[in-house]
């Protein structure tokens, strides 16, 4: 009697362990694109959704976020040339709490500066994933919307929102700095309203985004999520 009881307990224990292991496995990413010997270099934890705070706390946080927009200084396309004037005394983006940061780790706004080739997209995905949430994406120029004048190129992607979530598009080829500022103000407004949950969207639809990315990035030599 006693023994069987013990056995039962043990079975339960192993089963639980098994389950836990399975769960842990689900939380891991396959990282199939990496060479076997390279897998150890990268973190393979699956990103998970982070819920916003509740109520006024989140509003306050969102206000702070909207007042302190740090741009990732990565000129992904020719539109990046229109970012420079923002720093000048004529446009003075600092007034709005906007600053450029040289590293994705510290930035919260990623500006896709125009057309993105496949090669660039790989870097865009990598940098986007390296940013810490909440993070926002500004699509700058027509190319990010529908490919713009390069829409039929063998190498230019047409819709950036198929690969990473975009919060605000600024149309034009090229949009002027004023339009960019307009986009920023729109973004701020949206952040304050709590509408910019792009990061959680990316995680919710993670597999879809990944499938899209992998469809065109053939030599996927990075982990599935670049922590």
């Amino acid at each position: 009697m006693k023994e069987s009881n013990m056995d039962g307990l043990q079975t339960t224990a192993t089963e639980t362990e098994q389950q836990l292991e399975d769960m842990a496995k689900e939380m891991r990413l396959a990282n199939d694109g990496l060479l076997e010997q390279d897998k150890g270099y990268f973190c393979d934890v699956r990103p998970h959704r982070v819920e916003p705070y509740k109520g006024i706390m989140e509003s306050f946080a969102n206000w702070a976020r909207s007042q302190s927009l740090w741009i990732l200084g990565f000129g992904t396309g020719c539109g990046a040339i229109e970012l420079r004037p923002l720093m000048t005394s004529r446009f003075d983006m600092y007034r709005y709490g906007i600053q450029a940061r040289p590293t994705p780790r510290q930035s919260c706004v990623f500006i896709i500066g125009g057309y993105a080739s496949v090669k660039t997209l790989k870097r865009i995905v990598r940098s986007y994933e390296q940013m810490q949430g909440p993070k926002f994406v500004l699509g700058l120029g027509s190319c990010t919307v529908n490919g713009g004048m390069y829409w039929d190129s063998y190498n230019t992607i047409n819709r950036i929102d198929q690969y990473i979530p975009v919060d605000v598009y600024i149309a034009g080829c090229m949009p002027r700095p004023e339009a960019l500022l307009g986009g920023f103000i729109k973004l701020k407004q949206m952040i304050r309203e709590g509408k910019c949950e792009g990061m959680n969207k990316y995680i919710d639809d993670f597999d879809w985004y990944k499938a899209n990315q992998k469809q065109i990035i053939h030599d996927w030599n990075m982990p599935d999520y670049n922590w």
């Binding site: 390279d38 270099y41 990268f42 973190c43 590293t103 870097r123 990598r126 940098s127 990075m222």
Partner: peptide
């Protein structure tokens, strides 16, 4: 919570990835 320990190559490497330590 939500602070993830990452691997040694999980660094911002000018949008590239390192290949060798």
């Amino acid at each position: 919570k939500n602070t993830q320990k990452v691997g040694q190559f999980n660094i911002v490497y000018a949008a590239e990835r390192p290949y060798r330590p």
